[in-house]
Amino acid sequence: MTLIKANVVVQLKSAVHDPQGETIRHALEQLELGQVESVRQGKFFELTVEASSKEEAEKIVREIALRVLSNPVLEVFQVEIES
């Protein structure tokens, strides 16, 4: 068993309006850094799990992301296992 690090990003589904992202985009208009077409905001989680392989770690983290870190009614997630 080794300790494996995983990153999880949780975001609203693309069909779900993201008023926070939209508000950030409005704020960016005040900066003269070029046109920002859209902003979608989300949450980032860094997990360290004990697992025998990267595959097993990914399986555990996906389950956690699905059942706890995201709400499948309105969010989607991405899992990245650190090498």
Binding site: L12, V16, H17, P19, Q20, T23, N71, V73, L74
Partner: peptide, 17 residues
């Protein structure tokens, strides 16, 4: 109750934020 799956839907931040 929504998070527990006993009621449907979920709550987004108010549109006014």
């Amino acid at each position: 109750l929504q998070e527990a799956g006993l009621l449907p839907g979920a709550m987004l931040r108010n549109q006014t934020l």
